[in-house]
């Protein structure tokens, strides 16, 4: 028996049949002192058995320092969803509850090799010429959070300057404290700029540009 229920596995198998290109799932974990690492690893490994498009690589957070640094992993469990190359899509914490849908969305984006953003949004982001770090703080019980995560992931895929992290807030209470996360979804851009709630794609892109231009 796997970490996903039989019903979910049956449904997922059908859905994942639509994946187009290869999807690499890279898990950063460690054996000890990481409450959700095993679950995250097992989740990814089971999902990967449901489509031949997936491949899984597991790195040890303490031992594989070269990869840890290359992917900019500073906390675990972490999952990188990668297509032909690293497009800056990261999941920190266990993507359970509603956030499992975000993990599937990430796989869809890289598999289709298409960010699926509107031309207007791409136009807003086109002047971007410096690095942007978007952190979306979520809880697994928040139905609105995947809407925001999805857009952030699409931004990351569309623009090489953008990295988008889903952060499961309850697993990283020190970050909840640092960024004063008392409501989700909360988006933190480049450490200093933040907003709460759901914004349509275009307005979200405008907030990214505002953050980059110093608010």
């Amino acid at each position: 028996m796997g970490i996903l229920s039989e019903n979910v596995v049956t449904e997922l198998r059908k859905r994942l049949a639509g994946l187009k290109g290869p999807v690499k799932l890279i898990v950063f974990t460690q054996d000890m002192e990481c409450q959700f690492c095993q679950a995250a690893r097992e989740l990814v490994e089971q999902v990967a058995t449901l489509s031949e498009k997936f491949s899984v690589t597991v790195y040890d957070f303490l031992k594989d320092t070269e990869k840890v640094n290359a992917y900019g992993i500073d906390k675990i469990p972490a999952i990188v969803v990668e297509g032909k190359m690293d497009s800056g899509i990261r999941f920190f914490g266990l993507p359970s509850g509603y956030e499992f849908g975000s993990l599937l969305e990430a796989a869809n984006i890289v598999s289709r090799n298409n960010a699926m953003l509107s031309p207007e949004t791409l136009e807003i982001l086109s002047p971007l010429d410096r690095l942007v770090h978007i952190q979306v703080f979520v809880t697994p019980t928040c139905p609105y959070c995947p809407i925001v995560v999805k857009v952030a992931l699409r931004f990351a895929f569309a623009k090489e300057q953008i990295r988008a992290d889903m952060v499961e807030t309850t697993m990283f209470p020190h970050l909840a404290n640092r960024y004063a996360v008392l409501s989700v979804p909360k988006v933190v851009i480049n450490e200093t700029f933040s907003f709460e709630g759901v914004l349509p794609e275009k307005q979200f892109a405008e907030q990214v540009m505002r953050a980059v231009q110093g608010g």
């Binding site: 028996m1 970490i3 996903l4 229920s5 979910v8 449904e11 997922l12 859905r15 679950a39 989740l43 266990l94 359970s96 509850g97 509603y98 499992f100 849908g101 599937l104 969305e105 697994p140 995947p146």
Partner: peptide, 8 residues
């Protein structure tokens, strides 16, 4: 343990 997920 089994993880609860919600499929979109």
């Amino acid at each position: 343990e089994e993880v609860g997920v919600i499929l979109p």
